[in-house]
Design a protein around this nucleic acid. Structure first.
Length: 474
RNA sequence: GGCGCGUUGGAGAAGCGGCUUAACUCACCAGCCUUUCACGCUGGCAUCCAGGGGUUCGAAUCCCCUACGCGUCACCA
């Protein structure tokens, strides 16, 4: 078997989105697993929407995710260049061949005409294919059109024949009738090739062995296969990965959640977690384990465990996964990572240590700030209020207050010592001491270690909140 | 509307004709652990695989029909 060569070929029309990242990842993993090459090519033939900034964003996101390529933009390779706008002559050549062999022809129809026909066909419930009107233009007729200054497009003529067969690596055999395809444009009137044409030329010239891409491309594939045939080229293997759906079960878009990977980066997600999550979206590991490093994925990824049905993007699971990775980080690292979200906090390390196991993402640190910032007592929920009704509470809080006021070294360890002393002096169990203090200070039964929270709070705030809570009991 | 793909619990999913009284993970619920909280651990959570026919000794797994969802029909990629 020939060498495995796969590619990720984004068009730089916006930031790298989740679906693209997943395609890139699957291609990358497939290449690694099969000791093949992974190529990144830029499809920038849409002049209107393409930008260098988007290309940069895509590259940065790929790097951030830990997906690198051994051939393509930036790194180069023996099939350079890797930007379609820099390979225009290649397409022109191929188009000329098609023209010469009568498999393609110039079409002078205006966009308006075609749009009209399209609408009419659609209204009749027919396939809105091009009529083929320009196919039989004589040289004289063509000359006349040219003289009028009309710039033609080049259309590929799809001849009748057997249905186009796709032996899809993930979906199995799929067939498309040829007359359902219709003569399609391969070169625009400005001389720039259209997607379906450019990919074929590039994939062939770059010796791509497997085309792994999103399911939205499935209906493009017959067009491409027909081109391979006409050009006399061998087709690569195709594999169409199911879509990633948003919560509302429609294709993931800005409407149903964050779509670009920078959004996740900014929100404080770890690249390892995102990669792990993305891999699980459409691919199922063999065992029970779900936590995989890139290295492990590279070793276990396989196409036959890629699912046919679409996957819904489950934010809860992403957060959980991210938490799994985050909890393993040292407090020092966490401190550095949360710093951007909590400017001006002195005890960063203590904060990191306190919150580490409560965070699923770094940005969540903001949600915990009120726990120890501000003098005002926090709103109390019902089950917390219940705690303060215990008759030993006044005694506990008074004692705690006295000791806190007298505490020399106001630290987590110091607070812990006080709590211990209160237990000893009152003879009460752990919960009877910890809970009232926790509730009085934070208004809830749940949260990070109360001694650390108290230290973060500082003596002033602690006293004020305690005061308020005690006043409430009476 | 045509064409194409899909449909297993709230979500990701395993399953490939008998091993399935449908793995595993998230979420949820209960309990344990913990001087508090969290982490962690243990257990519970689909009498059933969109619905209906059929094939078979036997089907979530094969075939047909219906429904629903999604994708795609550009001089966008």
């Amino acid at each position: 078997m020939d060498k495995v060569r796969v590619r990720f070929a984004p068009s730089p029309t916006g930031p790298l989105h989740i679906g693209g990242a997943r395609s890139a990842l699957f291609n990358y993993l497939f290449a690694k697993r099969n000791h093949g090459d992974f190529i990144v090519r830029i499809e920038d033939t849409d002049l209107e929407r393409s930008s260098r900034a988007s290309e940069e964003n895509i590259k940065e996101s790929l790097h951030w995710l830990g997906i690198d390529w051994n051939e393509g933009i930036d790194v180069g390779g023996c099939h350079a260049p890797y930007r379609q706008m820099e390979r225009l002559n290649t397409y022109t050549e191929a188009a000329q061949r098609l023209l010469d062999t009568g498999k393609a022809y110039y079409c002078y129809c205006s966009e308006e005409e075609i749009e009209q026909e399209r609408q009419a066909a659609l209204a009749r419930g027919e396939m809105p294919n091009y009529s083929g009107r320009c196919r039989h233009l004589t040289a004289a007729e063509r000359g006349a059109k040219e003289a009028q200054g009309i710039k033609p497009v080049i259309r590929f003529h799809v001849e009748p024949g057997e249905a186009v067969h796709i032996a899809d690596l993930v979906r199995g055999d799929v067939y498309f009738e040829r007359d359902g395809i219709g003569d399609f444009v391969i070169v625009k009137s400005d001389g720039i090739p259209v997607y379906n044409f450019a990919v074929v030329v590039d994939d062939h010239l770059m010796e791509i062995s497997h085309v792994l891409r999103g399911e939205e491309h499935l209906s493009n594939t017959p067009r491409q296969i027909v081109l391979y045939e006409a050009l006399g080229w061998e087709t690569p293997a195709f594999g169409h990965i199911s879509l990633i759906l948003g919560k509302d079960r429609s294709k993931m878009s800005k409407r149903n959640g964050d779509v670009s990977v920078v959004n996740y980066q900014d929100a404080g997600f770890l690249p390892e977690a995102l990669v792990n999550f993305l891999a699980l979206l459409g691919w199922a590991p063999e065992g029970e384990e779900e936590i995989f490093s890139m290295k492990q994925l590279e070793e276990s990824f396989s196409l036959d465990r890629v699912s046919k049905s679409p996957a819904v993007f489950d934010m809860d699971k992403l957060k959980w996964l991210n938490g799994q990775y985050l909890h393993q980080l040292s407090s020092e690292v966490v401190a550095a990572k949360i710093a951007p979200y909590v400017d001006g906090i002195a005890q960063l390390e203590l904060l990191a240590d306190t919150l580490k196991n409560h965070l699923n993402t770094f940005s969540e640190v903001k949600d915990f700030l009120p726990l120890f910032q501000g003098e005002a007592a926090l709103p109390m929920d019902e089950e917390a209020a219940e705690v303060l009704k215990e008759e030993t509470v006044p005694q506990v809080l008074t004692l705690f207050q006295e000791k806190a006021a007298a505490l020399e070294e106001f630290s987590a360890a110091g607070i812990k010592g006080i709590l211990k002393a209160v237990r000893k002096e009152t003879g009460l169990g752990g919960a009877s001491v910890f809970m009232p203090v926790r509730v009085a200070l934070t208004g809830t039964k749940h949260g990070p270690d109360i001694d650390k929270l108290a230290a973060l709070m500082g003596r002033d705030i602690l006293m004020k909140r305690l005061e308020a809570a005690m006043a409430k009991i009476k």
